[in-house]
């Protein structure tokens, strides 16, 4: 029937989005509104208001109307210089620079570099907002002889409901889930959402042996993994031993709004948090190898 996804970007070689070399599809749109978001222009869908069109110094944007008079912002990638002026103009934290991809189009892209990759990862934005597309894509990969060896991973904020996870589970090799904060209140402050469903997703994926990685973003003075260290450590320890616990260090660049005032996490602060988790018996910690 041909589902189509709205995609912000596709990267054909990534070393940080799951095991091995991966093609990563960044979907447009997110249901969180994290203050610390590094790519806020992936949060909302473009509503074709047209505010960005005049601002483009390369004339790479235009506003068209369909037969019903519905407006549509068109992005002409061949003219675009990636100056990102449109992103700073956009009143909706969105981007006019998105593309629509059908499953066959994505499969063609994958086939072009199949020898170079161990798998594909859908990320975002929040990939699971376009779950039907993901299911169709993963299904197609798993049922193609030349692609079925590729692992299919989802990088998610964990807000997807458990019954929806169940639908993709047969085609899913693993998930990387962000846990933005331990306490409900802190999570709500940072993301504008509660974290009950995140914990439910983590539990389900862990039970099904599909939790590849849990990611904790340490924002000194804002996130609460250090102040809640005992509870966090106890929680991480009860996850299967194979789950990678990836500690990410908050960095200012890319963020907007009040998060610009938050201090970046230094290597020292990261090491301290890691040492305190290790002391409490948390194994399989993955630390950043680069700090800005």
């Amino acid at each position: 029937m041909g589902r189509v996804a709205t995609v912000n970007n596709i990267i054909n070689f990534s070393c940080v989005d799951g095991p091995g070399s991966r093609l990563v599809i960044f979907m447009q749109g997110c249901n969180f509104n994290c203050k610390n978001c590094h790519n806020p222009y992936t949060i909302d869908m473009c509503d074709s208001c047209g505010d960005c069109v005049a601002s483009c110094p390369a004339n790479a944007l235009s506003l068209t109307h369909n037969a019903q008079g519905k407006p549509k912002v068109e992005w002409h990638s061949e003219l675009c210089t990636q100056c990102d002026t449109c992103l700073s103009i956009c009143p909706k934290q969105s981007s006019p620079k998105t593309r629509q991809y059908s499953v066959p189009q994505v499969l063609a892209l994958i086939r072009k570099q199949v020898f170079f990759i161990n798998g594909i990862t859908v990320s975002g934005g929040e990939a699971t907002l376009q779950l039907p597309f993901i299911i169709e894509l993963f299904q197609a990969i798993k049922s193609s002889d030349d692609l079925s060896h590729l692992s299919c991973m989802i990088d998610s904020n964990g807000y997807l409901a458990t019954n929806a996870w169940q639908q993709v589970m047969p085609y899913l090799d693993g998930a990387m889930i962000d846990l933005k904060s331990w306490q409900q209140q802190t999570h709500r402050y940072i993301t504008n959402r509660d974290n009950h469903r995140v914990f439910a997703s983590l539990k389900l994926l862990a039970e099904q042996d599909k939790l590849y990685e849990i990611r904790l973003l340490h924002i000194p003075g804002v996130s609460d993994f250090d102040s809640e260290i005992d509870a966090v450590a106890a929680y991480l320890k009860q996850l299967p031993a194979s789950v990678r616990v990836k500690l990410n260090a908050f960095q200012q660049h890319g963020v907007t709004g009040e998060a610009r005032l938050w201090e970046s996490c230094t290597e020292q602060q990261m090491q301290t948090l890691a040492a305190r988790l290790t002391e409490r018996g948390v194994a399989n910690l993955i630390l950043p190898n680069v700090y800005l």
């Binding site: 912000n8 990267i11 940080v16 990636q82 990320s123 990410n248 890319g254 950043p288 680069v290 800005l292």
Partner: peptide
């Protein structure tokens, strides 16, 4: 510093940095 972790980095920001 092309990509540091599971997020995209804006080229314009990298240039400024």
């Amino acid at each position: 510093l092309v990509r540091v972790t599971g997020y995209m980095v804006k080229l314009s920001d990298i240039a400024r940095y």
